[in-house]
């Protein structure tokens, strides 16, 4: 176990290393000169040259990389080129915001997706199943700005129940932020719901078709007990993986939703950084997203293993 964890962590380290090289290289190829961008069109040659020197942009690339990587590891993620503020608190704060949104979204779409998936499986190929599949697929297909704007139109503008704009103040805590989280969380959930429901449906159908479920029924156990204890315990295993994989997406990939609602999440920060050629910001933000993806994958595998006695106890 410990050995496995070490191996996996080592592997994650390698992933991050590779990702850092890729991220660093890509940022080098972004068009435009950083110093020029920072100082604007009319800066003097001398000023630009001074800034380049100051930022270490004249050093050989590999040295630049090593400096940056060493800084990243020791927690010095550099200053934003645009705001001249340290990048780290900025990224971490946005990560916190994203985590709040992700948390609310998961609380909505995971239980709902599982419930719908199970209902679809139990009514397989009949009307409820077809309805659930059609609707959830439609939402997976609809772009988030469509669902988002629709929700704003109904609940914010039409009914006036919830704020249309979710640009919360920096440093808001969960309770303060909560009303602003609901609409974006629902928007995200509508997309995520389909995946969870589909995974749960197919997992449940597979399990319903096994000998051990037939055996459990013929043991005369009450139907609810068969479903809750015998079916779901096995059927939800694949869903665990999908949920964990979704975490990476929720934390770094909600650019559209965050933009529609003006929510200050990590995704939007990254886009902002890219627009401004804010290299330290792009690098740090991307690294965090990669790290979140890798760690949630590892978490998924471990949880899967813990839930599955075959793996937990070995042969």
């Amino acid at each position: 176990m410990a050995l496995y964890l070490l191996r996996r962590l080592g592997f994650i380290f390698l992933t991050l290393l590779l990702a850092s090289i890729i991220i660093f290289s890509i940022t080098q190829f972004l068009p435009g000169d950083v110093a020029q961008m920072v100082l604007g069109q009319f800066a003097t040659e001398v000023a630009i040259e001074n800034l380049r020197e100051e930022l270490g942009l004249n050093l050989p690339l590999h040295i630049q990389y090593l400096n940056w990587a060493a800084g990243f590891i020791t927690g010095d993620w550099g200053d934003s080129l645009v705001s001249r503020m340290p990048v780290q608190p900025m990224v971490m704060q946005r990560l916190g915001n994203s985590a709040m949104l992700a948390g609310v979204a998961i609380m909505i779409y995971v239980p709902l997706g599982i419930a719908l998936g199970v209902i679809a499986a139990l009514k397989r190929d009949r009307y409820p199943d077809q309805a659930i599949t059609a609707v959830s697929m439609a939402f997976v297909g609809l772009p988030e700005f469509v669902t988002g704007l629709l929700l704003i139109a109904i609940f914010a503008i039409g009914l006036g129940w919830l704020p249309a704009n979710s640009s919360i103040d920096p440093g808001s805590n969960f309770v303060q932020a909560f009303p602003y989280l609901i609409l974006p969380a629902i928007t995200v959930s509508l997309t995520g719901l389909g995946y969870i429901a589909r995974m749960t449906r197919s997992g449940t159908i597979d399990v319903l078709d096994t000998d051990y479920i037939r055996a459990a029924e013929l043991k005369g156990l009450p139907a609810a007990q068969v479903l809750l204890r015998h079916v779901l315990r096995n059927a939800l295993l694949p869903t665990v993986t999908v949920v964990a994989m979704g975490i990476g997406w929720l934390l770094g990939g909600l650019i559209v939703t965050e933009t529609v609602f003006g929510y200050p999440g990590l995704g939007r920060l990254l886009v902002y950084g890219i627009q401004r050629r804010d290299l330290p910001l792009i690098q740090a933000g991307s690294m965090i997203v990669v790290a979140v993806y890798s760690l949630s994958n590892l978490a998924a595998d471990i949880i899967y293993g813990l839930l599955n006695p075959r793996i937990r106890l070995g042969r």
Partner: peptide
Amino acid sequence: VWGSRITMVHQDPGAAVNPSI
């Protein structure tokens, strides 16, 4: 009646026992 007055034993014991209980 199932499981109390009539019980069943199935063909493939490996498949008829729930793997996670």
